[in-house]
């Protein structure tokens, strides 16, 4: 009885951590809508429902109804449905993030293949589901770690850790856990650890202490923007110079070297013309060249003198 209460308290704590993890990212998406962020929120919700729901289903099936697994012969268990489902969802999200829309069917065909394998064959000498999931999970972890360090993205680092944590506890469940309680503990620990690492990602812990301090950069940029906008607010009214309505410059991200042709907003052009003598620092928002935000130094001729991270 006490064990069951502790398990459900842990489950509740995992749900709470998931909600805490969602809070900053939902708030950011509410102020500045971003399709990728929106889909990441959906991903987190789906993963949380799968893990929390999987534990609840397993508890209900084993402890309340008193049935023994597998739920469907020969060897389909709730843990397998949840774990391989998590990998399929992560693979689907990865395909979405990389823009491979036509390949959305791949994760689900693989998932169906695994389910059919467990139902028809169970355990065999060559454990194809475990081997294929190891390949998928390993590939995803490596990909997200690579992207995390290349783009200095705490979110991707958190996703890599999430997949790793769930794989570790799934392996423990499969090869170490010997009874229902220990299996449930492994499931809950996977859920809890996964929520914690994602919470660290959404609260910018990895960015601040491990990868890149976006929060500090944002605060510096907001100070510059306030200084830039001061003359426009307090100064005399300035008409738009009709002869100079479009300025484009080639910009290169100092972090990841992505480049594009950037069209300067009219208010920046106007400010530049007003303050002809000073070197101006202009922020380049994210999604201009890549996911990074940085600033450029502009002279009176609208030439880029340098970059600032």
């Amino acid at each position: 009885m006490e064990t069951d209460i502790l398990l459900w308290i842990t489950w509740g704590f995992g749900v709470f951590i998931t909600l805490v993890a969602l809070k900053p990212i939902v708030r950011e998406n509410h102020t500045t809508f971003n399709a990728m962020t929106d889909n990441f929120i959906k991903l987190m919700v789906v993963l949380a429902i799968m893990q929390a729901g999987g534990f609840a289903a397993k508890y209900f099936y084993g402890n309340v109804l008193g049935f023994a697994e597998p739920i469907i012969a020969k060897n389909l268990r709730i843990d397998m449905i949840v774990l391989f489902g998590i990998l399929a969802v992560m693979l689907h999200f990865t395909l979405y993030a990389m823009g491979f829309r036509r390949h959305y069917g791949l994760p689900w065909i693989w998932y169906l293949f695994i389910i059919v394998y467990f139902i028809q064959l169970g355990n065999t000498d060559i454990d194809v589901p475990i081997m294929s999931s190891a390949v998928v999970a390993g590939g995803l972890v490596c990909l997200y770690l690579y992207k995390a360090f290349k783009n200095r993205s705490g979110l991707m680092f958190g996703i890599a850790l999430y997949i790793g944590a769930n794989v570790v506890f799934a392996v423990s469940n499969q090869y170490i856990a010997s009874n229902l309680v220990s299996e449930e503990i492994c499931d809950l620990l996977g859920f809890l650890c996964g929520s914690v690492v994602l919470a660290f990602a959404t609260w910018d812990v990895y960015d601040r202490y491990l990868l890149y301090d976006r929060a500090q950069e944002r605060s510096i940029k907001s100070t510059w923007i306030a200084k830039l906008m001061q003359p426009a607010i307090n100064g005399p009214q300035v008409q738009i110079i009709t002869g100079l309505t479009q300025v484009k410059r080639h910009v290169t991200c100092p972090v990841c070297k992505a480049d594009t042709t950037w069209e300067m907003p009219k208010d920046i052009i106007q400010l530049r013309l007003q303050n002809a003598k000073e070197i101006m620092v202009v922020p380049i928002p994210a999604d201009t060249t890549c996911d990074h935000e940085y600033s450029v130094y502009l002279n009176h001729a609208f030439e880029i003198l340098g970059y600032k991270i």
Binding site: Y104, G105, L106, I109, W110
Partner: peptide
């Protein structure tokens, strides 16, 4: 567009399953 390559993957999965399962192609 999202389902375009799904039949190819399904066919590959059926063939792969035939080999790893020792001849099952139900």
């Amino acid at each position: 567009e999202r389902l375009f390559y799904t039949p190819f993957y399904a066919m590959l999965a059926i063939i792969f399953y035939y080999f790893v399962s020792g001849g099952h192609s139900e």
